[in-house]
Simulated assay, not measured.
Amino acid sequence: MKEIHDKFDFGDNRRVVDALRNGDEHCFDALFRQSYRPLCAYASRFVPLARAEELVQDTLMWLWENRRTLIPEMPLKSLLFTIVKNKSLNSVSRNSIKSRVIRQLAADFEEEFDDPDLYFESELVRRFSAALRRMPEEFQQAFRMHRLEGKTHREIAEELHVSPQTVNYRIGQTVRFLREELSDYWPLILLLFWPEGR
């Protein structure tokens, strides 16, 4: 059971559901940690982030409290996203203009944005990496060193033998390019990859 605990694997749905049904708290903890941010990102399409976090916590606690009723044949990932979507839409006043707009947008983009896999990092990483590869190599390098390795502009400048201003320019241009290329996903990318909003 160790591999389920270390990295929650939705691929083995029956095994995970069986573990949950048997009260495996380590499995639930892994599920909670891996699902929380993707579910929040999804819910924040409909409601403010603070409300999204409440709804996701409620959903995951509901799952634990009702774990004995889970059916191994029902995909857990789809179940969680469906519950979160319904809770989110139900939490918005049905008669408000905002609610009507949100419901219309949800219907218009349902096929693309209701795919749970989009909210788990693999699909977004693929799109993000493909966009990044379209930048010049030296821009990619500066961006990776800063955003992914956490190095300062000065540290990068010293390592690459360029000025801090050059590093700043390369990183700024890369961020602008990625924001344009991935504009539909940018809020989601920020939430999943840079939750501190850098």
Rank of each mutant, 00 (worst) to 15 (best):
residue 140 Q to W: 07
residue 11 G to P: 10
residue 37 R to Q: 07
residue 104 Q to N: 13
residue 146 H to C: 07
residue 52 A to M: 04
residue 9 D to K: 04
residue 34 Q to P: 00
residue 86 N to E: 15
residue 51 R to H: 05
residue 56 V to D: 11
residue 26 H to W: 09
residue 24 D to R: 00
residue 70 L to T: 08
residue 80 L to P: 08
residue 141 Q to W: 01
residue 170 R to D: 03
residue 75 P to N: 04
residue 155 E to C: 03
residue 120 F to V: 02
residue 99 S to R: 04
residue 184 D to K: 15
residue 125 V to G: 02
residue 77 K to A: 06
residue 41 A to T: 09
residue 128 F to P: 05
residue 91 S to T: 11
residue 180 E to V: 03
residue 141 Q to N: 14
residue 34 Q to I: 10
residue 43 A to T: 01
residue 26 H to E: 15
residue 184 D to F: 12
residue 124 L to D: 04
residue 59 T to K: 02
residue 23 G to S: 11
residue 34 Q to W: 10
residue 173 Q to D: 12
residue 100 R to M: 10
residue 198 R to F: 10
residue 53 E to I: 01
residue 12 D to C: 09
residue 144 R to E: 12
residue 134 R to Y: 10
residue 124 L to N: 05
residue 3 E to Q: 15
residue 147 R to I: 13
residue 51 R to Q: 14
residue 1 M to K: 13
residue 101 V to H: 13
residue 32 F to N: 04
residue 154 R to A: 07
residue 186 W to I: 01
residue 161 H to R: 10
residue 192 L to S: 04
residue 178 L to R: 08
residue 67 R to L: 07
residue 10 F to H: 15
residue 67 R to N: 10
residue 101 V to C: 04
residue 18 D to G: 03
residue 163 S to L: 06
residue 160 L to I: 12
residue 174 T to S: 15
residue 119 Y to K: 00
residue 28 F to Q: 07
residue 60 L to I: 12
residue 37 R to L: 06
residue 79 L to W: 04
residue 81 F to C: 05
residue 42 Y to W: 14
residue 138 E to F: 02
residue 4 I to Q: 14
residue 134 R to V: 00
residue 172 G to D: 00
residue 58 D to V: 04
residue 65 E to V: 00
residue 198 R to S: 08
residue 77 K to G: 05
residue 15 R to L: 13
residue 9 D to L: 11
residue 91 S to Y: 07
residue 163 S to R: 12
residue 14 R to G: 09
residue 17 V to P: 01
residue 122 S to M: 01
residue 72 P to V: 04
residue 59 T to C: 13
residue 32 F to L: 14
residue 48 P to N: 01
residue 37 R to N: 02
residue 151 K to E: 09
residue 168 N to G: 06
residue 113 F to E: 09
residue 119 Y to Q: 06
residue 93 S to R: 11
residue 11 G to E: 14
residue 155 E to N: 02
residue 94 R to Y: 14
residue 106 A to I: 05
residue 144 R to H: 06
residue 62 W to K: 02
residue 15 R to T: 14
residue 184 D to L: 15
residue 150 G to Y: 11
residue 163 S to Q: 08
residue 120 F to L: 08
residue 139 F to G: 00
residue 143 F to L: 10
residue 169 Y to K: 15
residue 191 L to H: 05
residue 40 C to N: 03
residue 155 E to P: 02
residue 170 R to S: 03
residue 33 R to Q: 10
residue 65 E to N: 12
residue 1 M to W: 01
residue 153 H to Q: 12
residue 24 D to S: 06
residue 7 K to Y: 13
residue 48 P to M: 00
residue 108 D to V: 07
residue 156 I to V: 07
residue 135 M to N: 03
residue 173 Q to E: 09
residue 88 S to P: 08
residue 78 S to N: 10
residue 116 P to R: 11
residue 66 N to A: 12
residue 143 F to P: 06
residue 173 Q to R: 15
residue 57 Q to G: 04
residue 76 L to A: 04
residue 80 L to R: 05
residue 14 R to K: 14
residue 99 S to F: 02
residue 163 S to I: 01
residue 81 F to N: 01
residue 163 S to W: 07
residue 180 E to G: 12
